[in-house]
Amino acid sequence: MATIQVTRGELSLAEKLYIPEVMRGVAITTRQLVKNVFGRKDIATRQYPDVKKPYPERFRGRHRLTWRDDGSVRCVACMLCSTACPANCIHIVAGDKGDNTVEKYPVSFEIDLLVCVYCGFCEEACPCDAIRMDSGKHPMPSFSRDKQRIRKVQLLEEGQPSTSHPGGLGN
């Protein structure tokens, strides 16, 4: 373990007397208070719940499932996201849609946000642009663990139509 020797400068008489230094500190605080109350221009503090910091463009937030043009879920339940998921938090039950153009769809699609590590591997793996993490929302606290398991309906509520074309731009 490295040891760092810190040499401190000698205290001057005014500093040793203590009271003048306290007065100086109070003066700084008072000046800041007056500035904050009367002129709100260059405040360092962010007024958090009212003013939010914009997240960077590539921020990976809560997942969403995108829609087809007819509003149905774009996911085909291929399980590539749950295969790629290092935290094993995606649980899909696939079903037969009975429609020869789509065939497979997710009967249920659950993500356990308490387990998710927000790595983004699921959106990387998705061949259909069906799962995305660009909702810009971060996980919200809740009073039960069950609330943190977000389900297909919630994921679709976050969603919107995908901009990609099935089978590439040529189709």
């Binding site: 339940a77 291929c78 399980m79 295969t83 696939a94 079903g95 037969d96 497979k104």
Partner: peptide, 9 residues
Amino acid sequence: FRFRTRVWM
């Protein structure tokens, strides 16, 4: 077995 489980799992 249709759509039940991916075989690699």
